[in-house]
Amino acid sequence: MKKFINDPSAVVTEALTGMAAAHPSLRVDVEQRIVYRARPKGAGKVALVSGGGSGHEPMHGGFVGAGMLDAACAGEVFTSPVPDQILAATKEVDNGAGVLHIVKNYTGDVMNFEMAAELAAADGVEVATVVTADDVAVQDSTYTAGRRGVGVTVLLEKIVGAAAESGADLTSITALAQRVSDGGRSMGVALTSGTVPAAGQPTFDLPEDQMEVGIGIHGEPGRRREPLAPAHEVAQMLVEPILDDADFTQGETIAFLNGMGATPEIELYLMYGEVAKILTDQGVTVARTLVGSYMTSLDMAGCSLTLLTADDELLRWWDAPVNTPGLRWGQ
């Protein structure tokens, strides 16, 4: 393992310390591992709290700021934050208009946010929850924990963050969040495994000539292995299962090609070029595009594609100003 670390068990805390040093727009509670805005949003507005395991940066701490999240709770690497943290963040950012928890569908995340929401409700804070579950690599059935929450989470935090900034109430914010969650589909592929600092070695072995198709973001192996293929064939493997699962030919679409941490931008753009060709051929109209590493899996090489059905309202929220360490435009 070759990493910039001091002590594997201090990685999360030390990274948060660095984040605080780099971004005066944030207030970081290093002890509790919560990232807040330095300047809270105005009273009477719904607050957004997300969080999850560390190792996915910039998600979620990097999405705290005007137009996106109010607080993000960082867990250990690839491990959900605990209810105490989520409860503390929820109570801190509540402006009296309620709090939306944005949770990715992983067993641990769902359970910890659920416990925190129960505790917050007992303390008189109104909490609503949206659980993202957009990964088409996982069959959504009673025989699995359900689809994983992946790329659509980033798009949701941006879109719903803009709506919350405008002063919409918790009921309409929650409905919007659910609509975004329902309208997104994702598929990912990995070329190498990431290495969890505390484990010290790659989470799974992947031979040079193989790739893992249908990966999540926690280093869990995917559904199947395939021989490494040219980019245009990989693009097909990303697009096809998404279009098989949902119809994106009606209306407009936001396309998000995400890097998993160790894939350079040159390859991401090359891949997006291939994806864009296929989408055009398949009659998908892409209205907005995001390409870059926004939801990573430590040093995993690979990428994921997310498509989101977007109407005028969603596109308006998407275009609204955002000012966070991870996403910034329009200001």
Binding site: G53, G75, E76, T79, S80, P81, V82, P83, D84, T107, G108, M111, N112, E114, M115
Partner: peptide
């Protein structure tokens, strides 16, 4: 355990 384990094992 709830406060320190995280993941699914903490709540469980």
């Amino acid at each position: 355990l709830v406060s320190n384990v995280g993941g699914a094992s903490g709540p469980l």
